[in-house]
Amino acid sequence: MANLKKFLVRRLLTFIPTLIGVTLIVFVIAYVIPANPAKAWAGGEKASEEAVKQIIAEYHLDQPWYDQYWFLISGLATNSIIDPRTSNPVMGDISERFPVTFQLAIIAFVFILLLGLPLGLVSALKRNTWVDTIVRIFALIGVSTPIFWLGYLLLYIFFVKYRITDLAGVPPSPPTQIFHVPIIDSLLTGHFTIFKQHFARFWLPGFTLGFAGMGVLARFVRNSFLEAISGDYIEFLKAKGVPKLKVYRHALKNALVPIVTVLGLQFGSLLGGTPITETVFSLPGMGSYAIDAIRNLDFPAIIAITFIYAIIFVTTNLIVDILYAVIDPRVRY
């Protein structure tokens, strides 16, 4: 266990430079922004000279780059950057929309796990049969289907044709909040009607977002399971007289090591898919907020959102690495 602790400390230490790197890239993105957004924010071509000047001063647009960097990073950290479009602190706007995006990604992730894992195992156990071929084709179609296309296709079926799902707004949150993710909170606090409402609103977008991941995971589970089962230690287990099911358990645990990594990556690409999914299903999450921000040249918001996405992504990777170390004793060194 001492090894595990040491590993955790070391891994957390490498987390810091990555975070600094993220802020640097975000800053570079901000720095490329042409100098005239001030005019746009001040109200377009008709904007008065003073208003523009005031905005330039407020957002430090005339300062040297290190000052701008510090202004931006400290502003994001202390939530003191005001969105020129909504006149709210940027982080405030984002934190309102964060639960929607997070909930969407979680539901998609659950879909991936529930469908991808069993499909992968079945196709490994039935390798080189028609089951295997179907899973393989399903995986390839999954990664090839544009999210927006699948989204509208499913909308056409479930909304236009049969009215099974609903597109308006987002259901209320349960009164007591634990994780600030309504669907989890309502389940934990026993508000099943709210849970149902959220599920009814989110299952279709979640499925759409997770569609690509299911096949990818299934293929990956299949391959790593087959790889694990061809290991020498599996033969030795059989030679020891260990029953089949227990042999499979060993193989599965060994296969889990790479699977955990892929699941982490999957979560990252799920996050990437949220802007499109939210746009298709009119969900008021961070993704659709980012798209609105782009349409209005609302650069502080774009930057803040990029930053938040990166933080979630990097944190996910951190969790994956920790899980990895918990499963595989070799990693702790």
């Binding site: 430079p17 990555t18 790197g21 993220v22 640097l24 890239i25 993105i29 901000a30 490329v32 922004i33 990252g268 690409s269 996050l271 990437g272 898919g273 802007p275 499109i276 980012a290 798209i291 782009i294 650069f299 774009i302 930057i303 959102i305 990029t306 996405y309 990166a310 992504f313 990097v314 990777n317």
Partner: peptide, 23 residues
């Protein structure tokens, strides 16, 4: 590799969205 890691710290589509918005 540190620079590479910095870029890989973003979900690909998000970084692409941000860049194609500001460029």
């Amino acid at each position: 590799m540190r620079i590479t890691d910095m870029f890989l710290a973003f979900p690909a589509l998000i970084l692409a969205i941000a860049l194609s918005a500001v460029l």
